[in-house]
Write a protein that binds this DNA or RNA. Structure first.
Lengths: 176, 176
DNA sequence: ACCGACATGTAATTCGTTACATGATTGC
DNA sequence: GCAATCATGTAACGAATTACATGTCGGT
């Protein structure tokens, strides 16, 4: 787990760091950050809205972000401070931690001999479809990103290669 | 998230379910379960020892497992009960939940333009090496499993295809 | 002017990680 | 028979998810 010290004695966690990262190009409310992450990194970097709000509170406490005027529906935009930028950069500098992965389908397959084939087949089919959808989505987005010279195309290429591998794997399974 | 009701009003979570699964073929202590998971599913199904001990406690409270005589070093083997088996099977029957994935390296790459190339290069190299190691390990294990007709070979094939894809992706990156 | 959908955030609960304590074993 | 390592578990803490509350907009 990567961990950075921002100023004396305070550890920035990876979730907080990603929040800071999304504030770099301008003030955003928790909601905005959530949808931005969801729409870009979402599949490789899991976060929930509540985490974001929590981190925004603690980041405020440490002076790394500053809340602005609250607007409609209590919408409160946060601005990153100079300290916040510094903390984010320091965090980025750390070596990234290990992947955290939980794939319930594989857990189920591990116990495949306890389960009947039709059920297994159904479950496999559902997940296969999800992955196929994702691959599609990634391909479309990658075309755009690649054309625009967006370095985020790297992530999409990751997604594409990963999803292709997963689909190839599905094809080797004896169910579905 | 997959969730099963074991008897009236009690939700088995995925971690608890995997613990039950590992008790199916005989009594085990928390430690044993931990090393068993680590050594088989570990890369696809993240759990820590402490979680296992906690779940064993709550499973005991619900009558799904029974602690045995405590041996040396407070070692306490647990046996799955009939209710436990039923709960596990019911849980398996549920549709598996979505993957939970957190890949700090990709988070970092998302912000690649804020970081200098040498640092990025180092980080990428470290992670590449880790994946290469894993691929090796999977290949060796898969050969054995495949030969033994172990259905767990499916998981290893997943690992292999995934790691191959990841390595191929590394080759497309402009760093390292 | 109401209803349904969406936006926004908070609180309660569950889950996961890290740090710790201690008891056996093994190798010298 | 001591030191180092491994096995085993617990407790304290931090992080993540779920459930909830409320407000606002858009349509009819």
């Amino acid at each position: 787990m990567p961990v950075a010290s921002a100023g004396p004695g305070f550890e920035l966690n990876a979730t907080a760091a990603s929040v800071l990262g999304f504030l770099l190009d301008g003030p955003r409310a928790g909601w905005d950050i959530a949808t931005a992450i969801e729409g870009s990194l979402g599949d490789f970097w899991n976060v929930t809205r509540s985490q974001i709000y929590r981190e925004l509170r603690t980041l405020t406490g440490h002076g790394l972000v500053e809340p602005g005027q609250t607007g409609a529906r209590d919408r409160r935009p946060y601005t990153i401070t100079a300290d916040g930028r510094a903390a984010f950069l320091a965090w980025l500098d750390q070596e990234p931690g290990d992947d955290v992965v939980r794939i319930p389908l594989l857990l189920e397959l591990f116990f495949a001999d306890r389960l009947d084939d039709p059920t297994l087949g159904r479950h496999v089919a559902v997940h296969r479809a999800r992955h196929a959808e994702r691959l599609d989505r990634y391909r479309q987005l990658a075309a755009l990103a690649e054309a625009a010279g967006d370095h985020r195309a790297h992530l999409l290429r990751y997604g594409i290669l990963h999803e292709e591998a997963v689909l190839a794997w599905f094809d080797t399974l004896p169910w579905g």
